Amino acid sequence: MTEDFYDILGVSRDADEEEIQKAYREAVREYHPDVSDDPDAEEKFKKAKKAKEVLTDEEQRQMYDQMGHEQFIEAEKRGATENGGRGPGGPGGDPFGGGGGGFGGMGDIFDQFFGGGGRSRNRPQKGQDLKTQLTIDMETAYHGTEKEINITRPEECSDCNGRGHPPGTDSQTCPECNGRGQTTRVQETAFGRMQQRATCRRCAGEGTIYEESCPTCRGDGVVREDATLVVEIPAGIQSGQTLRMRGEGAPGEQGARNGDLLVEINVEDHPEFERDGSDLQKHEPISFPQAVFGDEIEIETFDGPVEFEVPAGTQSGERFRLKGKGMPRPQRRGQGDLYVQVEVVTPESLNEEQREALEAFAEAGGEDIDVDQGFFDKLRNSF
Rank of each mutant, 00 (worst) to 15 (best):
G116S: 15
G118W: 03
R119S: 02
S120K: 14
R121H: 04
R121F: 05
P124V: 03
Q125K: 11
G127R: 07
Q128M: 10
T132Y: 07
Q133M: 08
Q133H: 15
L134Y: 07
I136K: 12
M138Y: 09
E139M: 14
E139T: 11
Y142S: 10
H143N: 15
G144R: 00
E146K: 14
K147R: 13
E148K: 09
R153A: 10
P154F: 11
P154M: 13
E155A: 01
G162H: 00
G162N: 01
G162Y: 00
P166S: 14
E176F: 03
N178V: 01
R180G: 05
G181P: 10
G181W: 03
Q182S: 03
T184R: 10
R185T: 02
R185P: 02
T189G: 08
R193G: 04
T199L: 03
C200A: 08
C200P: 04
R202S: 12
C203V: 10
A204C: 11
A204I: 09
E206K: 09
I209Y: 05
Y210W: 13
E211I: 11
E212A: 13
T216W: 02
G219M: 04
G221K: 04
R224L: 13
D226T: 05
D226I: 03
T228V: 12
E232G: 10
P234E: 11
P234K: 06
